[in-house]
Design a protein around this nucleic acid. Structure first.
Length: 472
RNA sequence: GGCGGCGUACCCAAGUGGUUAAGGGAGAGGUCUGCAAAACCUCGAUGCAGCGGUUCGAAUCCGCUCGCCGCCUCCA
């Protein structure tokens, strides 16, 4: 089966055929860096990270561009509120963004351009639009004339008339049409500004993506991604700007991830009902956040709750405990072999519009199979499954860490949180084993209960007693 | 009002015309164990919001009804 994506432009599933055979250009709208990222951003980041990895896995040479929008109204407002420069605010947030992305195991895009580094290109594009009669200056601002662009609304499937009738549109007598949007804004005192043919000002919201995408990928390019909430007006306006100016197609496949809901309501900064990536990763680890995200198909709504996040943490621990068991049994022996059927199933799932939920199911089916084979002593049959799982992990980004190290780290995190000394645990285990040798099971169980109260569970294995962190 | 989408077991979630409806979490029973834990095995929706229709056959297609959500304003 060939790779297929749901294209927002056509509203249906389409076979993916890149512009240039073997190469793919992907542009994804990154974040506006005015605050920390939350689970909603995490979803977009992880979704398109998986897309990037799967395209590479499928043999494509991929150029992946994800931008930072580092100049806009909110950034200016936040900086003023905090009494710092916009540049400082931006740097702080880009740093924390980098931490979040790293925690979730996302690969670095090929390029991460910033809006403020591309203002010249934006001015040039705006001038082109003015020259073509698609934009007009007004009091130091420049607006795009939506009714001059015939295809306006083709992505979001809206008609200009419907939009005006249905929503409150701010009256602005400088605009020729109520839906006209700003390409350039005259700067007020104290705001960042650039020189332009229309005076000192700064770019509007949508123009930076038109410029940065085509700068690195050309026009047209293959895939443009982002959240569904960007379809209108952001992506619609990108199309208007780029296709209006150049008279040719902008992006060929539009992929949009669904929203994260919390209590059946969209998670968002404005509603204040968000959990930051940092909080979530601190609770269960970034990789579990990632598993939480890919457990649902990217276009479906995803309901967030702390309990569901914890479930993902438990599932991930189960995966790693099996991997640790497998690696111990294989002892680093060669595990190459013919690509087993699971890998084909994985490809089929991913080719079908990135069905990561199904792919995760395949991972856990494999986990169970490997456990069973180990119980039956069929170690050699486990090898090929283990190597298949490694390949799958490299795409999904879960289970890719060295298993023992992962488990050890989550232990250490817990001990640090609970302020427990590992030596104390070992000491109690010794006391308990002494009691057990004397058949003093009452005393032995008391010690076990004592540890359990601290979130430590014991397992008596053939090789002795080991301890683990109780699953939350 | 316009556009788009959703409703599958206790919770989450794949499956979108054809053998026994993936997988995860929680739960029950069993094997193992001093007892546990972990792991494994077994059990769990005769049914996929409801009602009609198309079809040899539908969770899957069509129609209607009910419930829910997103976008239309900054937003991943």
């Amino acid at each position: 089966m060939s790779l297929r994506f749901h294209n927002t432009l056509s509203g249906r599933l389409e076979e993916f055929v890149p512009l240039v055979s073997g190469k793919v250009g992907v542009y994804v709208c990154g974040v506006t860096v005015y605050d920390r990222s939350h689970i909603g951003h995490a979803r977009a980041l992880v979704t398109f990270d998986v897309l990037y990895r799967y395209l590479k896995f499928s043999g494509y040479e991929v150029t992946f561009v994800r931008n930072f929008t580092d100049v806009d109204d909110k950034i200016i407002a936040r900086a003023q509120q905090a009494g710092i420069s916009t540049a400082d605010l931006v740097e702080t947030n880009i740093r924390s963004f980098a931490e979040d992305v790293k925690a979730m195991g996302c690969e670095s895009p090929t390029v991460e351009p910033r809006a403020t580094e591309n203002v010249d290109g934006m001015i040039a594009l705006i001038q082109e639009l003015i020259d073509k009669g698609l934009a007009y200056p007004a009091d130091g601002d420049v607006y795009f004339a939506v009714d001059k662009f015939r295809d306006y609304g083709k992505l979001s499937k809206r008609k200009l008339d419907d939009m005006i009738a249905g929503s409150r549109v701010e009256v602005d007598e400088r605009k020729h049409h109520p839906m006209d949007f700003a390409l350039w804004k005259a700067s007020k005192p104290g705001e960042p500004w650039w020189e332009s043919p229309w005076g000192q000002g700064r770019p509007g919201w949508h123009i930076e993506c038109s410029v940065m995408s085509t700068k690195h990928l050309g026009q047209p390019f293959d895939i443009h991604g982002g959240g569904t909430d960007l379809i209108f007006p952001h992506h619609e306006n990108e199309i208007a700007q780029s296709e209006g100016a150049k008279g040719k197609a902008f992006a060929r496949y539009w992929l949009h991830n669904g929203m994260v809901n919390i209590g059946a309501e969209k998670m968002s900064k404005s509603l204040g009902n968000f959990m930051t990536v940092q909080q979530a990763a601190g609770r269960v680890g970034g990789e579990a956040v990632r598993l939480f995200v890919i457990g649902t198909h990217y276009r479906s709504p995803l309901d967030f709750s702390p309990d569901r996040l914890d479930e993902s943490g438990r599932a991930l621990t189960r995966l790693y405990e099996t991997l640790a068991r497998v690696d111990e049994a294989l002892k680093g022996e060669a595990e190459a072999g013919p690509a087993p059927a699971v890998l084909e199933e994985f490809r089929t799932a991913m080719d079908d519009d990135l069905n990561t939920a199904r792919a995760v199911g395949i991972v856990f089916e494999t986990v169970r199979t490997m456990n069973r084979l180990l119980d039956e002593g069929k170690v050699d049959e486990v090898g090929v499954l283990r190597s298949a799982l490694k390949e799958i992990s490299s795409v999904l980004g879960i289970g890719g860490t060295e298993a023992v190290a992962f488990l050890e780290r989550s232990k250490q995190d817990h001990l640090a949180d609970a302020e427990i000394d590992p030596a104390e645990i070992e000491n109690l285990i010794s006391q308990r084993n002494a009691a057990r040798r004397e058949k003093n099971f009452k005393r032995a169980d008391e010690i076990r209960d004592q540890l359990k109260a601290l979130g430590i569970v014991l397992e008596d294995t053939p090789k002795g007693t080991i301890w683990k962190i109780e699953k939350r």
